[in-house]
Simulated assay, not measured.
Amino acid sequence: MFEQSRTMYSSNIAFTGLPPNHGLRAKEVDQYTRIMGDIQALFRSRLQIQILLALADGTKTLSQLRDITGSSSQALIPKIRKLESSNFMAISDYEYHLTPVGKILTKKIKDIILFKSVTKKHNTFWDQHYSEAIPEDFFVNLGELYNSDIILDTNVDIFNVYFNFLRMIQDSKEIYILSPISSPAHTDAVLKRIREGVYVETLIGKDLIGQILQSPHFDKIHELASHTTSKIFILDEMPRLGLTVTDKQISLGLYKSDGVTYDTTTDLFSADPAAVAWGQKLYQYYKSNAVEFTL
């Protein structure tokens, strides 16, 4: 009897082909279906979103909301009433402000806007590279990289990315590098800054350090590791991305979309404090899984 029941149960699993978390996903779909009208009504309204975003950095009067949105009081007031009835905003002493629920909602909206904006602004960069290498917790905050530029090597400037790297480290007091490749030219530039007293940390993979120790460039690695203002950390498994982040700037490089070849000809660069903070956290994320290299 038990064998028969088990056979029937197994055949049902094979028939449905449902993954173990199917119930959870179905529940989320059901939840969306129940509140779909509210979500669509909110995002269809340009004014409602603009009002929430305007209040994100502090209280505003009706006059200020008119100036920010470019709309009349007659157009604004019905939207304000709708947001008030949804407990997203309130008024006190003739000034509007977000409620606790409204603050959380507005932060989520800002995250969506920034994420969509940065992926659209640099769509070619993300489409042509292995962006899956960026950990999910950092990818969801990709909007922090909005104020950035794509630096490319071109036919008339084949060292554009490299020279940008030189300018970047020359203007820095601290340098943190995560490098999936070995480049004598980059190493020489970093050594120059170390000799000038700049603090440098380098994260490299176990396989790469093994290759370097067998190469003619071992003396440079020896010098990197011997300076008091320089440290090398080793990762068991190197992520498929490159990162240079300083106290002022960030440069992010990715593998090509095949996930096999590192693209040395293209970097995302930014001096925006939000982008720099994002890069510093990403570096620390990988450093937490590394061990210091000693000769």
Rank of each mutant, 00 (worst) to 15 (best):
L235R: 15
N87Q: 14
E292F: 00
K103G: 10
A271S: 13
G102N: 11
H122W: 05
V29R: 02
E132I: 03
P19F: 01
R240K: 14
K206A: 13
T246Q: 12
L268R: 06
T265H: 10
L295K: 01
I250T: 14
I169A: 09
I221H: 00
R25C: 02
R193C: 09
H129R: 15
D247P: 15
N164Q: 07
R44H: 11
I80D: 11
D153N: 15
G205F: 12
N289C: 06
Y162R: 08
K60I: 04
T154Q: 07
Q280P: 04
M1P: 05
Q31C: 09
L166Y: 01
T16Y: 06
K192W: 08
A90Y: 12
G197L: 11
S230C: 14
A271R: 08
R167K: 07
M36S: 13
T7D: 12
I177A: 05
T229Y: 07
K108S: 15
M89Y: 08
Q170M: 11
T61S: 15
A274F: 10
L24H: 09
L254S: 04
N160S: 08
S45K: 09
D171R: 12
M8E: 05
S11L: 14
P78Q: 10
S182A: 07
D153C: 07
R66S: 05
Q74Y: 07
V190A: 12
F218N: 03
E196N: 09
F15G: 03
S257C: 06
I151F: 10
G102M: 10
F163P: 00
P19T: 03
Y262K: 04
L295R: 04
S117M: 05
Q128H: 10
I109H: 15
S230Y: 10
I151M: 11
D247Y: 13
Y199M: 09
F165E: 01
I35Q: 13
K79L: 04
T33R: 11
Q64V: 02
L142R: 07
F88V: 09
Y94R: 15
L42D: 02
F15V: 06
V29G: 00
K281G: 08
A75E: 03
S182R: 02
S226C: 12
